[in-house]
C-alpha cells in the first residue's frame, strides 16, 4: 500500500470548514450537526419496534413533530453526506483501511471498550446539552450564542481536566 498523503494545512482546513458552515446557514438557516441525526434514528427505531411505548413515553411524545417520519430530517441527510464525503477524501488520500487506532500503550480491547463508553457519555451529553461539538459548540459559536460558548468551554475544559487520568489510553 502506498504511503498516505499528508493532511491539509489546518488553517486552510478551518477556512474551508467555515465556508461549509456558512453555506449551511445560507441554505437552511441553521448550522451543522451530528448527534441530532443519531437521535432521529433512535426515535425512528423506537417508533418502529415499540410503537405503543413511543405513544406514551414523554420524550417521544414531546419530540414527535406531529407528522412525518423522523428520519426525513435535515441532519440525517447531512450525516449521510458526511459518510460519503469522508470516504471520498480517505480514498483520494489513500487512507482507507480497517484498523483500530490507539495510543502505543493501550490494547485493542481496552481501546474499543473505552470507545463504547466514551460514545455512551457523548450521546447522553449531546442530548442533555442540546447538541454536540458541531451542532452546539461550533455552530453556536459562529452565531455568538451564549449557549454555544458555554457548551464549548464545558466540553474542552472537562476533557483537558481529565486528560491526565486518561493518559494510558493515548500516550
Amino acid at each position: 500500500m502506498k504511503e498516505a498523503k499528508k493532511y491539509m494545512n489546518p488553517y486552510l482546513g478551518g477556512v474551508l470548514l467555515g465556508l461549509v458552515l456558512i453555506a449551511a446557514f445560507w441554505v437552511s438557516g441553521r448550522g451543522l450537526g451530528a448527534s441530532g441525526a443519531v437521535k432521529s434514528v433512535v426515535v425512528a427505531g423506537v417508533e418502529t419496534i415499540a410503537p405503543g411505548h413511543a405513544e406514551t413515553a414523554t420524550f417521544y411524545t414531546e419530540n414527535k413533530e406531529g407528522h412525518g417520519n423522523p428520519l426525513k430530517s435535515w441532519l440525517v441527510f447531512e450525516m449521510l453526506g458526511v459518510l460519503v464525503g469522508g470516504f471520498l477524501s480517505g480514498a483520494l488520500a489513500g487512507r482507507l483501511k480497517f484498523k483500530v487506532e490507539k495510543g502505543p500503550n493501550a490494547t485493542n480491547k481496552i481501546r474499543l471498550i473505552f470507545a463504547v463508553i466514551g460514545g455512551i457519555f457523548f450521546g447522553f451529553g449531546a442530548q442533555l446539552g442540546r447538541g454536540c461539538t458541531s451542532g452546539s459548540a461550533l455552530t453556536g459559536m459562529a452565531v455568538l450564542s451564549v449557549g454555544g460558548f458555554v457548551t464549548m468551554a464545558a466540553i474542552f475544559g472537562t476533557a483537558f481536566a481529565l486528560a491526565y487520568f486518561a493518559r494510558k489510553l493515548w500516550l
Binding site: G33, L75, G131, C132
Partner: peptide, 8 residues
C-alpha cells in the same frame, strides 16, 4: 415566525 428549527 420562529425561524427554523435547529438542533444537533
Amino acid at each position: 415566525k420562529k425561524g427554523v428549527q435547529g438542533g444537533c
